[in-house]
Write a protein that binds this DNA or RNA. Sequence first.
RNA 1: GCCGAUGUAGCUCAGCUGGUAGAGCAACUGAUUCGUAAUCAGUAGGUCAGCGGUUCAAAUCCGCUCAUCGGCUCCA
Length: 683
Amino acid sequence: MSEKTIKIQLPDGSVREVALGTTPYDIAMSISPRLAAAVVVARVRPLTPMAAAGTVAEGEEETSEAAMYAGPQAGSAAGERLVDLAAPLTEDIALELLKETDEAALKVVRHSAAHVMATAILELFPETKLGHGPATDQGFFYDVYRETPFSEADLAAIEQKMAEVVARDEKFVREEEPREKGLTDYSAQGEFMKVHFIEKFTKPGDEISLYRNGGFVDFCRGPHVPSTGRVKAFKVTSVAGAYWLGDEKNQQLQRVYGTAFYNAKDMEAHFKRLEEIKARDHRVLGKQLDLFSIQEVAGAGLIFWHPKGGLIRKTMEDWMRDECIRRGYEMVFTPHIMRRELWKISGHEGFYSQNMYPPMELDDAEYRLKPMNCPGHILIYKNSPKSYRDLPQRYAELGNVYRYERSGTMHGLLRVRGFTQDDAHIFCTPEQIEGEIAACVEFADEVLKAFGFAEFKVELSTWDPNDKKSYVGDERHWETAVSSLKKVLDAKGIPYREIPGEAAFYGPKIDIKLVDVLGRLWQLSTVQFDFNLPQRFELEYTGEDGEKHRPVMVHRALFGSVERFFGVLIEHYAGAFPMWLAPVQVGLVPISEKHLEYARSVKAKLEAQGLRVELDERNEKMNAKIREFTLKKVPFVLVMGDKEAATEAVSVRTRGKGDEGSVAMTEFIARAVGLVESRGVLL
RNA sequence: GCCGAUGUAGCUCAGCUGGUAGAGCAACUGAUUCGUAAUCAGUAGGUCAGCGGUUCAAAUCCGCUCAUCGGCUCCA
């Protein structure tokens, strides 16, 4: 047996023949000891497909929970996976040694950091029971159960203890043992969560894998870094509640968050980035730039738009209305409260009431605040008989809706209780449906581009056939609807991800998530198919054949919620809005009081061109005025003194660029007006 | 809704183990009249989130409520 060899193919294409059982570490060492010291983990891909199948099948789970539990695993169709450096190689493989610069391997470091943290927690608080501790995009966490919650001081103590565990440089050793032994041992220790995971992710007769470092052992699929000393930069960041198995009916665990990096410098950069994100937080900027507020006396999740925010909103809404009209929509308005009877007919009473405010008694009946605009639009459609010649009917409304959100869920403008949907409902014949949906998707694309977003991701949400009671309509309806949505996306060549169980109760939908400058994803636009409401309201049109037919209906919102879109916009631009959206486009700074008169004349001229101008008439030094306009992120600041007054000129200071010197008024006006009209992002 | 933290002047924050509030900026008044990110001086401004309790005495300790923040869950 010891004669037996295997082939190892390295990334440069070279192939080495080594003894069976050679480890990636051995190979790294044979290349160079320095490489061996820098390598974190190995990526292997079996060279023969047969072997690949065998390797991947081992312990490979497809559920996301399993993936999360088991930690980082690059499971791909090619059978690629990450293994410990100490893992004996048993077949012909392509081997890649991942060094401390590799992004994928960072997850391994973080997963190992989670083990280090668990080690520290158990040493300090032995009564703690362990859940799971995966790596995340930002770092890692470990879910644990303990009667008393961890305090700030506890977190600091945990971090300190982790430093000790790292200093001990304990080897991560993979061990395997019979599943039954694992179950018995963990049961004896009262580790109910570990018992659950073993039962869920392994089958009777399986060997389970454990990772040991020093006195700490954890059921885990791995892989890990060679030793705890390889977790070089880490921090325990916070603790929060998390439900066991994500179900709020279960007990609450403590999720201890941390992060880890290859080195202190990377970690510093990470926290610096977090600070930058915080600096562009729409809640912070909303206050700084005086855009909006949320008032405790008025209630949570309710937005007050201040004049400057209001102006941006007006600009957004005007643009949207004009675009709708240009595309054959008609603007309508519907009431905010409507009789309960209507919500019974629409099905909201049954399927949506947990999100609706309770009914209010009026003299004649009970009324409810609207959570959606659709029933109102339907009543308009239904108000007069329709012929196929009238279709499609496209009703659009910037409709204020109110939805009950649980108290802990609100978040600035992004999650509120009262918001405005740029909502539209399209009533059309079955033949028209695909064209209408395609037009909606195109429109959505245009909206995102107009506001400066270049990238987006598409999701197709369908129903969960195993949970039919959460949806209306029969199987046949759902299938046709889903297939027509798919057809549109495929025809446009738009890549999408299908998510079963995410549909609205009345039909499947296409959700468009935009990607902002920081690469974050935001759910905004949605195009939804509805075959429920036309039926419930018995909508009809007269066909070419003189018979009555049922129209189909499309719901669509492109901003989604004006509030949320605005919030995302603030963060996207970090408050530095492009010219066409900026609430104040030009700030005027007279150098001294004697230039006030000229400044006023400049203001009048600019305003005559439709520009939004603010003149600082205070008795302040010009530097102070410039500073304030700069902090308010005003695109242009015009400074004027004797020189400018004498020549009908202005000295231009551009946001992000600085002093650009004097130009003639006419020249500046052309530039400013041009920028507004082109809706350019750059100044 | 759940777990944890927080709530002091318009804003950002200080106020140790209980002895009845303080700074900077902003505002207002006055002086200054200035060439590209903060001129100087003075004045005014606070139910210490709200309600209740302990105490001779509460911003400070306790309870409840509201709101905010970080998560969980849920969602546009």
